[in-house]
Nucleic acid binder design. Sequence first.
DNA 1: TTGACTTATGACCATATAGTCATTATAATA
DNA 2: TATTATAATGACTATATGGTCATAAGTCAA
Lengths: 217, 217
Amino acid sequence: MSIIKDDPLKDDPAKKSRIDSILQSARKLVEEAGFSNLTMDTIARNAGIAKGTVYLYFKDKNEVLEKVLETGFERMFERVSRNVEKEIEPEDKLKTLIYTNLMYIKENKYFFRTVFLDEVNVIFLRKKSQESFNRRRQRYAEFISKIIKQGSDAGKFKKINDQLKLSYFLISLIKTSAIYNFLNHKGGLFADMAAGYEERIKEEAYEIFDMFMNGIT
Amino acid sequence: MSIIKDDPLKDDPAKKSRIDSILQSARKLVEEAGFSNLTMDTIARNAGIAKGTVYLYFKDKNEVLEKVLETGFERMFERVSRNVEKEIEPEDKLKTLIYTNLMYIKENKYFFRTVFLDEVNVIFLRKKSQESFNRRRQRYAEFISKIIKQGSDAGKFKKINDQLKLSYFLISLIKTSAIYNFLNHKGGLFADMAAGYEERIKEEAYEIFDMFMNGIT
DNA sequence: TTGACTTATGACCATATAGTCATTATAATA
DNA sequence: TATTATAATGACTATATGGTCATAAGTCAA
């Protein structure tokens, strides 16, 4: 059991800032070198503390990794759902979802690399954490699933048996598009967050939307 | 440099059978426990030889992993392309491609888990092998790309700028579908290779084809 | 200032495992 | 059969790293 979850002092600001600085350190290292090269010693040093100290705030390495993933996912999901819920029509919801998701990926290399590019991280987690990882994923898919149902009920999308599966399809299209552009523009997507940036992401989002709605014919 | 590639004696049947038995052992272990739990000692023991012996036939662990992946991919690619080339119309080619690919995944848990479910393996490979992994992937995407071009030129598919990207989309749909069914039928897809088996895969293939061609509207 | 309590430290331990190599077994050849 | 060449062995080394814990530093109330 982690201090984070169970310690009644979790609101102690000193404690919280230690935890944050550890997580921030881990996040930065993951961003730079990926999950596979993450060691407790490096995390500690990069946070300016000793290894033993990390264990005062986290049960084990796994808990650090999990928290890194969790916070990244939570942020994305909150942003996406906040934006999506402003829309009324299911088509607009999907468009907004795709766009916001892509934006988030572009702005958060580390999350992109860990959760999307590498699915990799999963195997570094213990069984229990794998489950929580899948649960998060599932939650996102279910969120999308409701939108599809709405469109389906309104007669805008065709009748679909397995809406959940389609949701996973959409997630994988978003992910694939991000990976593809990442690999084929040599990080350019990250390099130029400036001119025409949002415009290009809008185009990319539309491509995905069009693919998902109409296919290739 | 590996003995496999450079030794003029590579056609020595005794040598070849040793190599095969090592690869087969590794393949089986990957299938059972995944890449992350693969050790050289286990591979050797499972093949009924000593660890040192493995190093007489493979430069290092990485080379073993790479060969396992390579042979798996080659087999799939050959089977898919052989079947696809029997077809004439691009739609039929795509249908056949999806179906054959799914069949292969279903029949080869180990390959499915390593190359599709876990993309995981990639990080266990050294830089050089990552490249060869991506090259193989790219080769498959290019193969699909040609089919799409054919359909596009014939006016059957809409005009598409980036056919290669669409090919990656299709690959990810196939993969996602396989993962989804795997996770949601608790291995059932593997368990019952018997009655109605091919029929269900045909349905699954058609779903993907339909999604790719027509989207959800 | 003192002593009790909290927090931090990093040397150390335990473990896992890739890869080596002196030794031994087997096969080939004379 | 004796000699040489080749193949196989597995104990051993080297290294990496997660996690521990005795010790030290810091904090604070009395």
